[in-house]
Design a protein around this nucleic acid. Structure first.
Length: 568
DNA sequence: GCCGTTTTCGGCCCGACTGTTTTCAGTCG
């Protein structure tokens, strides 16, 4: 799949045009990029079938440029634009409040072309004197530059996991045993690379097969027991071949985390044993190794689910047989945030409902934007009521899925919602979320959010911290105070399952459930392909030690309705 | 540059917010 690369190129072209003050082309390229990125189908296949122009937003020139890129690895248009303005656009625009226009000025006036130049110029106080800049802008640059630097070092779980699973699928027939390891198996929100472990008697054949997969851009290492490849899109994949009798201990070893493993080895040592990737040994005698369960068992520990292996108390809990009974991936019965084309989603409600039924959901909530967020198609009351009539019709047609009619309202700067209560009280599910004024001081922000939670019509505080992984920092918030208010007012806090949000994150989930706060999983899907991300929300819940009782999506429908009926 | 026609040209989600100005441009969603 090279969709992402092409999307990146089109986005870069859009940035370049924006810098040159050219109208509309940026939007066209961005739209093309967006549609390619969430295609859910391999663009090379579409090219081979000569169907590129059937992709919405792709026309004559962009289709040609996709072909050009797939054939030659370059797009001349971008190369030319880069010669005119040789700046590292992507890392520079990762600094909040710095966009194409400002970058242009910085380059032309000060010769700034990368983050190092930018930092130097800011430190020397050269930026505040530029026209359109000022002291605050300069301070802001210095404050945000390290965040911008970290961007792009790791890959998002939600985008890597499907590809890793595909690779496993492709290899399965070639091997005796296969399993994902590493941070991907622990379902960490970002991963540095992909680790795959296999058992096979024909190691050379397996390695040849692996290094010749279609998706390989470069073979970095090709050995008998370990090979490393880099995929189109940049991520590296390690494949290791181990002996059958060591598979469990190797899986344990390569799953990590490092801290978890150090503790485990210490326990082994204390008991006169030695633990490594080849097995658990007493002198030279193998006590365990074939299965992970046996390794833990021989150390007098409960088997620890991979999501918990971060050395934050799970080993003590495993010792005392008191690991939490984690929510299971199939405990989640439905999705409590999604958007249709009634606001800014791409698919019709019918398409979203059908896909949700395919995923086995027994309930969903449409939570389209309302109110002042016009850019996201915010509906007025009349439109929203029309949507409700349509939902009632669908409900008659489908008796296997319950459809809540919800909405997503904006929390204004002062904590009020941007629609009035006569509107709010008609909704089955009210999400409240921040879409503006992200940079208030902590105290003011906390007050603002708590005010929204105290609104008696609000059921769920959605994407509570607003962070986007590697893109946008969290708002400044006293989360413990927010949790306290949420519990008091019976408001659930969302685990937004969209790959770049995962907000709340695992650490926050842990804190929330310790305060008995209920949590809600919503994909925030803006097209039907996004609906499958709900399991990422479950992964975050598991990493935060959540159980079935903590997650309202795991409630029975009647219990969930009860939870949502607080104002009636 | 793409789209969809009132079919080969004209329109393209736009409002809030911030920091810069002193009435507005750039950024963000």
């Amino acid at each position: 799949m090279r969709n992402k690369e092409i999307a990146r190129i089109f986005n870069e072209i859009a940035d370049m045009y924006e810098m040159q003050d050219i109208d509309f082309k940026p939007r066209a390229y961005r739209k093309a990029a967006q549609n390619i990125e969430s295609l859910g189908k391999d663009i090379e296949e579409i090219y081979e079938d000569d169907e590129l122009k059937n992709i919405p937003g792709i026309g004559e020139s962009t289709a040609e440029e996709i072909k050009e890129y797939l054939d030659t690895g370059k797009v001349q248009r971008l190369e030319k634009l880069k010669t005119d303005m040789p700046v590292d656009l992507r890392s520079l625009s990762a600094v909040e409040t710095i966009g194409p226009k400002k970058i242009k000025v910085l380059y032309q006036q000060l010769g700034v072309s990368n983050l190092d130049d930018l930092e130097q110029a800011a430190k020397q106080g050269k930026i505040q004197d530029l026209e359109g800049f000022g002291k605050k802008t300069e301070e802001n640059i210095l404050a945000n530059i390290s965040f911008a630097r970290e961007k792009g070092q790791r890959f998002l779980l939600g985008y890597v996991l499907p590809e890793a699973k595909e690779i496993i699928q492709e290899l399965t027939d070639q091997v005796d045993q296969i399993e994902l390891a590493g941070s991907l198996r622990r379902m960490k929100e970002t991963v540095g690379d992909v680790d795959i472990l296999v058992v096979s008697s024909e190691s050379e054949k397996v390695m040849d097969y692996f290094t010749n997969l279609d998706r390989v851009e470069q073979v970095i290492a090709h050995g008998k027991t370990k090979s490393t490849i880099r995929l189109y899109g940049g991520i590296q994949v390690d494949l290791r071949i181990v002996n059958k009798q060591s598979f469990g201990s190797a899986l344990q070893y390569f799953t990590g985390s490092k801290d978890h493993n150090v503790k485990l080895r210490k326990i082994a040592q204390k008991n006169g044993l030695k633990l490594n990737e080849y097995g658990l040994f007493e002198d030279d005698k193998r006590k365990a190794g074939e299965s992970e369960e046996k390794v833990y068992q021989k150390l007098d520990l409960e088997w620890v689910p991979p999501e918990l292996r971060e050395d934050i108390g799970e080993i003590d809990a495993a010792k005392q047989n008191s690991l939490p009974n984690l929510i299971q991936y199939d405990d989640v019965n439905g999705d409590l945030q999604m958007h249709s084309n009634w606001s800014d989603g791409s698919n019709t409600m019918k398409e979203m409902i059908e896909e949700s039924r395919n995923l086995g959901h027994s309930f969903i909530a449409f939570t389209d934007h309302v109110g002042t967020l016009k850019v996201a198609g915010g509906m007025d009351k009349k439109e929203w009521e029309k949507q409700g009539e349509k939902i009632a019709e669908f409900q008659k047609k489908f008796d296997d899925i319950h459809i809540f009619h919800g909405l997503e309202a904006n929390i204004k700067k002062n904590g009020d919602l941007d629609i009035d209560s006569s509107f709010l009280k008609e909704a089955d599910v009210v999400l409240a979320s921040v879409h503006s004024s992200f940079r208030l001081p902590k105290k003011e922000m906390t007050k603002r959010i708590i005010k929204a939670i105290e609104n008696k019509y609000v059921h769920i505080l959605s994407h509570p911290t607003g962070r986007k992984i590697q893109k946008k920092e969290a708002i400044n918030l006293d989360l413990d105070a927010v949790f306290k208010a949420a519990r008091k007012n019976d408001v659930a806090i969302e685990i937004n399952a969209y790959p770049e949000r995962l907000d709340l994150n695992d650490v926050h989930v842990h804190r929330a459930i310790n305060k008995n706060v209920k949590l809600s999983i919503g994909t925030d899907a803006h097209r039907k392909d996004h609906l499958r991300y709900y399991s990422l929300g479950t992964a975050v819940a598991r990493r935060g030690w959540a159980q079935k009782k903590d997650i309202i999506n795991a409630f029975s429908l009647s219990k969930l309705k009860n939870f949502l009926n607080k104002t009636q």
